[in-house]
Amino acid sequence: MAEIAIKGVAKRFGGFTALHQVDLTIADQEFMVLLGASGCGKTTLLRIVAGLERPSQGEVWIGGRRVDHLPPRERGIAMVFQNYAVFPHLSVFENIAFGLRMKKLPQQEVERRVNRTAELMHIEQLLKRYSGQLSGGQRQRVAVARALAMEPDVILMDEPLSNLDALLRLEMRAELKGVLAASKTTTIYVTHDQVEAMSLADRIAVMHQGRIVQSASPVEVYRNPAARFVGSFIGNPPMNFIPATKAENGSWTVAGLTLSGPKSDKPRIEFAIRPEDVDAGGEGLRATVRVIEPLGPHTLVTCDVEGGLFRAILDSNASVQVGDDLRLAPKPDRIRWFDPETTNAL
């Protein structure tokens, strides 16, 4: 059992605040992804859980034990580093065995675990080699095997796939998911890649400027962004935002369309819709087509709506031309509203 609780953790580097009062609980065996742009504090948060960084304030609990004053080796964690950190002076076998040797496990047990994890990661034929003789993907496998061999309660991963080429990344992603689910560890995984986050996570914590903006399941984060940032960061292309002005009896005017929306005493709020949640034709937002990008399964159309950029994903059969005036009808149940001042969802 290793539930992780992060309570009121803040981190300041000199005058710069990297993390503001972060609270997050990760359930036992949960796969939690910290997602955010570079500099949002996700790696700092991971390093605080690992013990490589000390929080300026707040507490970290792992498995019901307060650990923020403990060195990394007493926290029952294993970690996979962004640059793998496979020791160049040790063979693959000794790299995987490193943590086990530190624990002074008997040789027989060390061999058993190294062989088991090497097999799991398909690197059993590389055990005698050195890091310098491995490809990036193989080093990645060694780094994961080294973490798994510890049979830890918690595995921390810091952008482990970011140095791999696209194809390998896809392959490793699927493999990691399977291996980690089978190992029954609690995982915190840091990435800036939203596709990686969506595909791996049980839950995603979206971070922005040192705060967790939303932590929810991938689908929830995608469908119901808690803040404007989440909608604009997740999704490719991201969510569209259009200013909405107050009309009669609680409805809102959006680009010539009158929609019923949330109650608000503000004169202007923001309307938001995902690119795939509009249909061409009928009654809809007035849009002028600027760019058409056929992508195979569908067509990405970039338009002008109310003087702002609007992206719509249309059926690849849709016959649109640059310069066309379109009507884009938003699916009513997919419309979201945001407060322009707090940027929170309404």
Partner: peptide, 14 residues
């Protein structure tokens, strides 16, 4: 590289 020390630290080296 600093990462080697961090890895060693995480994997239990004093």
């Amino acid at each position: 590289p600093k990462e080697y020390y961090e890895a060693a630290e995480v994997f239990g080296a004093s």
